[in-house]
């Protein structure tokens, strides 16, 4: 029995050692992605992950010379799972915000696009405090859009919060919500330009205030992994410089999503 315990203990120490050494050199990186946020990430019918975020993730890994595994994770649990070490980085169009920075470290931005409202064509809703009064707005829960609408219009509107952006689109089609608030690019490609969203249109100005939306979307990592943050920053700069970013950008968008 004692020998058995010793073997188990030795195995545990070995495994722990392997875990630590793996964490040190970042030759293998596990990346958390969402998979329900077209055109940035979605799941194909055969189960493969596709989209801008996915292509960027693969390009960055190639640049860093790391072997990457993509892990699909629901938005609600995407930060807790990072902290629980289920993966080492999040590439899921996550806006860099002060409140998230309290829990995770961010790379520099890898794109920045404004938020916008959408309404049903012919509804005539205007984006003012009076125009929004009593209306129902759909957002994805715990996004910058959720924080923005809660803080700025929380008293005037009813907010419906969804686990994924796709669910919000579904309820927009069936007429359960009067307005959508989301990233303009995601909504344009993921909804308005699809058959489902043909009766909907953008309304109101671009929202890009840094207070709510931050400097753009970045890669989130655990705060102690400062070396990984540096590696990702270097890789972002490299793919921006060598044309890889531009090639991926062109595949999905007609304009530069990196912003100024």
């Amino acid at each position: 029995m004692r020998k058995f315990i010793r073997v188990i203990a030795a195995a545990a120490v070995l495994m722990l050692g392997a875990g630590l050494s793996q964490a040190a050199d970042w030759s293998k990186v596990r990346i958390g992605v969402e998979g329900a946020y077209p055109p940035f990430s979605w799941v194909e019918a055969d189960g493969t992950l596709k989209g801008f975020d996915i292509d960027v993730a693969n390009a960055l890994c190639k640049e860093m010379g790391a072997e990457c595994t993509l892990v699909q994770q629901d938005w609600d649990g995407i930060i807790p799972s990072l902290l629980a070490k289920k993966y080492d980085a999040i590439i899921a169009s996550m806006s860099i915000t002060p409140e998230r920075k309290k829990k995770v470290a961010f790379s520099n931005k890898y794109y920045n696009t404004p938020a916008k409202f959408a309404r049903m064509k012919g509804s005539g809703i205007e984006i003012t405090k009076e125009g929004l009064a009593g209306k129902t707005v759909g957002v994805q829960r715990a996004t910058t859009h959720d924080s923005f609408i809660t803080a700025e219009f929380g008293d005037a509107v009813t907010i419906k919060r969804y686990g994924t952006q796709d669910e919000a689109y579904l309820d927009a089609v069936s007429g359960r919500i009067d307005l959508l608030l989301a990233d303009s690019v995601a909504m344009d490609d993921g909804f308005l330009n699809t058959d489902n969203g043909k009766d909907w249109e953008f309304v109101g100005p671009d929202f890009i205030e840094e207070k709510y939306f931050g400097p753009g979307a970045g890669i989130a990592m655990r705060q102690e992994d400062t070396d990984l943050v540096e590696k990702f920053n270097a890789a972002i700069a490299a793919i921006r410089a060598n044309g890889t970013y531009e090639a991926i950008n062109k595949k999905y968008f007609e304009f530069d999503v990196y912003g100024d």
């Binding site: 829990k103 829960r141 715990a142």
Partner: peptide, 18 residues
């Protein structure tokens, strides 16, 4: 399905404050 029941409340608090 967007209802803020007891579990819905827990989900909101979780997703805001991690």
């Amino acid at each position: 399905i967007t209802i803020i029941d007891l579990f819905g409340a827990a989900r909101i608090v979780n997703s805001r404050y991690f």
